[in-house]
Design a protein around this nucleic acid. Structure first.
Lengths: 230, 230
DNA sequence: GCAAATATAATAGTATTACTATCGTTTTTG
DNA sequence: CAAAAACGATAGTAATACTATTATATTTGC
């Protein structure tokens, strides 16, 4: 699976960037060290000037790739969700049982990220931390609707749609497949955050994982009256 | 109930402000128009200078109440959750059946806010919109841990703890009462957001409410094997 | 191998932000 | 009524989030 993935370029909507960062060495350094710096000082304190210093390049050069730090965040989040999407597709591919497929899919979107050596300039463990800490900021803006129209959130919505379809296969009569799908994905990020910063309002921690919680929640939500198999 | 509440002052941790905005006319105007202005232009574009213009006062005077706009947001969110907490306590008070109590509690934390005339200078409908759009930004910061130690999130955590206890009463064997409680509260905000901005990834809208979704989810999550009553 | 095109670097400049500090005036209150 | 507290006005600062221009380096196409 890792080899299959390594031949694929994770595809990010091209309206997000001015110049594709994958197309040059400087572009890749912007992504690589952008991730590290956002993780280090937080997105709010992050500036292109500081990133320029880190990569020994100039602020103005970074602006030729991304028109703002907000667009860079949109790039990173789209990349992340596309990466998760690929993992979901591969992990659920050829799984014959509908329920098993759903459990696999939930596992992919809720688990703690382990390092992936496929994309050398992107540290997925750190990127995942950025998603947990900063993802909401990418859409909690006054510009959401216009940016949504521009397609900046396509990857994320497609992932939720895929998960919704897998849910519907398990129980076509379930009334809230979209809300369940979006709750699992967003909720998992939230539980991972709580685990680190507000442990008193989550059960997730050393013994219990968000994956366990959401699989249990989903399993019960989709149980039909006549279903005693689980 | 409204009359009972009107005698209560919603209590916000006093470390959040420099001077209690409830203690003066200017303070109340800061809160009242702060809410309106944040809703109008979004928290990111909101500044004390702009607020000063709106209320015919000076930037420097506002700084005498709140040391930063971030603290003002913490004030508003604490106020909001304390207000929700009161409603939850009153709505569940004297409800004999554990399940009914839980459903009432979920309703209070997930429903669409209708206007409340009790607190004249605070428009709860608009404040709710701010919570939906901006709440995450109050804790998704590099300072969460130190601010959490200072008690800035006490009200929110207390609300989640209350909900958790109500959940535990219904099913003491349920393994994830804290995670379920935090998922309901955070998830409801998220579903309300999706309803407005990303309707394709939620079932909530005109026909279905977040309350319905989360009551259904909880009901199924807490069902015991021998429980056929619902 | 060289000219043209492209990419990058360096510098400067702008309006705004998120404050702090000071001072004078008004209002409150003991 | 005097002292204290609150408020308003002004000024100042370092940083932010850019844009614009120009110079230099690198790549490429013929």
């Amino acid at each position: 699976m890792i080899n299959l993935l390594s031949n694929l370029k994770i595809s990010v909507p091209d309206k997000i960037f001015i110049k594709d960062p994958e197309s040059s060495d400087l572009g890749k350094r912007i992504i690589e060290h952008g991730i590290l710096l956002i993780d280090e000082i937080g997105f709010d304190s992050f500036t292109f000037k500081k990133l320029g210093v880190k990569i020994g390049s100039n602020e103005s050069s970074i602006y030729r790739y991304f028109e703002s730090k907000h667009k860079l965040l949109l790039y990173l989040t789209s990349w992340y969700w596309a990466w998760i999407e690929y993992q979901m597709v591969f992990a659920t591919h050829n799984v014959p049982d509908d329920k098993d497929r759903l459990f696999k899919a939930i596992e992919v979107v809720t688990r703690t990220i382990k390092e992936d050596v496929t994309y050398t300039h992107i540290n997925e463990v750190i990127l995942n931390r950025i998603i947990i800490n900063e993802y909401s900021k990418s859409y909690l803006t006054k510009e959401v609707d216009s940016e949504n129209k521009e397609g900046y959130f396509e990857v994320y919505k497609r992932l939720i749609h895929r998960l919704r379809e897998i849910i519907k296969n398990v129980n076509p009569d379930y009334k809230f497949p979209s809300s369940l799908a979006s709750t699992i994905v967003e909720g998992a990020l939230h539980q991972h955050f709580l685990k680190v910063h507000f442990s008193s309002i989550t059960d997730c921690g050393k013994a219990i994982t968000p994956t366990e919680f959401f699989i249990n929640l989903t399993q019960n939500a989709l149980k039909t009256n006549t279903d005693e198999s689980n």
